[in-house]
Design a protein around this nucleic acid. Sequence first.
DNA 1: AGCGATCGTCGCAGAATCGTCGCAAAGGAC
DNA 2: GTCCTTTGCGACGATTCTGCGACGATCGCT
Lengths: 224, 224
Amino acid sequence: MTAALLLAEPEPAIRGYLERQLQSDGFHVLQAAFGGEALALAERTRPDLVLCSELELCARLREGEPGRTWNRDVPVIVLGPAGADAVDRVRAFQRGADDYLHLPLVYDELVARIRAVLRRAAPPPQDRVEVGELAIDLPARVVTVRGNAVHLAGKEFELLAALAAEPHRVFTKDELLRDVWGYKSFTRTRTLDSHVSRLRSKLEREPGDRFVVNVWGVGYKLVD
Amino acid sequence: MTAALLLAEPEPAIRGYLERQLQSDGFHVLQAAFGGEALALAERTRPDLVLCSELELCARLREGEPGRTWNRDVPVIVLGPAGADAVDRVRAFQRGADDYLHLPLVYDELVARIRAVLRRAAPPPQDRVEVGELAIDLPARVVTVRGNAVHLAGKEFELLAALAAEPHRVFTKDELLRDVWGYKSFTRTRTLDSHVSRLRSKLEREPGDRFVVNVWGVGYKLVD
DNA sequence: AGCGATCGTCGCAGAATCGTCGCAAAGGAC
DNA sequence: GTCCTTTGCGACGATTCTGCGACGATCGCT
């Protein structure tokens, strides 16, 4: 499960450098040049962590708007300007930053901080997930509905597992395409829909069953 | 297999901090403010490990009372006060502590020690594994199906033993090639498949038997 | 109601993977 | 050296998966 980072940094040189480095360390990296773009991207793609140099953005992520609980809790690491002092640091934490670094960056330290923040934010890994009548055994890759084992193909299982990571939460299509398929660009594709259809036809044998629910214009969620 | 820790620490600030941190690292954490409470909780919940700052508690856990053999062997890590010296350390081990740290804590070190103690206390590796009709005697390298001994070649046995380390869990092909063959690169090879085929033909004499199951695009697992 | 965007489902063809067979090289026992 | 077992791997056919286009249904908005 490679983590997805949103890199909101106005300076192209720094942004480009960090993107290359972080990608080679196995992260998914999305770039945004300014705060507004970053907010929109965060909403669509739901990164696991945001790296930003504007305190403003950090605060706006924390605020949350009516009807949008998303992103409220996304971990944020703030990259302060060179020569930043203790006051900036405190200010960043007051705005809800999870960690603070200032330029010049020691890259290895940045990665260490990213990993630490991700670890802190990650839910403890589960071997088994149950959602209503549905039970998923991750290590064995076995899915049962009302006790009956259901055979799922690879991608179907991964899709279900991704949704089951947080039942009831809506996952955007972009997010699922990233987590399950590793897609980086959001080309319009019907692949996800096809797989949802197949997944449903295998899980929802009885009429009235509906485990995988579509949220119009957004994505899918797992319910009971 | 998340370990359950009992955290017996009178100081609320330290207790709260440790609880949050340890929980985010995937441990089950139970709190107790003082020794008596801790003893009662330990008796009820049988944690996998006790963290405490009172030597007294450590000793009482070790004593055991008539009719209560529990907790006698539970691993204990003692957190000594700031400025503790070698004498405190020795005293702690005399009272039966498995490890000793003193404040100020380096959190990562604490986690490392917890993991080390848990590992040390873990049940010794199994000599014998049974999965359904299949029995594997590791030291003797003997495999029986429904009581009939089956002769397996070296690699076949090692492959079976690797799968039997965690029955039902799916092992990826890369994982098996690494564990059994020591391969480091993921070159595409049919070696593993060949051996699975041979292993099956020896284990699964009766039609309908299926001990080694393929998971498409992932790897193999052992089932009953 | 009308319109554009999105979604559910079907079917297919190419790609990827798997089970098995057979061979040749390597290794051991005698 | 000879015989036998083990082992890695290529080849073949069979199976399974998967991405995507097509078509109609549905949704949200005006």
